[in-house]
């Protein structure tokens, strides 16, 4: 069992967390968004091998956060609550 750091609760079992996609994948705004941009937003993924920045949610407390992680070694480098990633 790997432990992931919830910014609110601290280290908890990996099974309590849910993956939420690439960090920085902002929803396009406005009424005239071209189809390709919608498709990019909805479906295209970076899916990096190695260093990754991802959105996760700790399902027990509901905290959403950005986790920096290595997808090959599973090493966790940082976790930052959403909204705080610019100040941190």
């Amino acid at each position: 069992m790997q432990l992931f750091p919830c910014p609110f609760c601290g280290p908890r079992d990996e099974t309590e967390f849910h993956y939420g996609g690439d960090a920085g994948n902002a929803r396009p705004d406005g009424g005239d968004v071209p189809i390709d941009r919608w498709a990019n937003y909805l479906y295209l993924r970076s899916n990096p091998k190695g260093a990754a920045r991802e959105i996760w949610v700790h399902m027990n407390c509901g905290e959403f956060f950005v986790m920096e992680r290595d997808t090959l070694t599973h090493e966790v480098l940082s976790s930052t609550a959403l909204g705080e990633e610019h100040t941190a």
Binding site: M1, Q2, Y19, K49, T71, L72, H74
Partner: peptide, 13 residues
């Protein structure tokens, strides 16, 4: 396994 991964091994849970 519900964690995006390139580690060809799998987690215990």
């Amino acid at each position: 396994d519900r964690i995006p991964s390139y580690a060809q091994r799998g987690n215990l849970p």
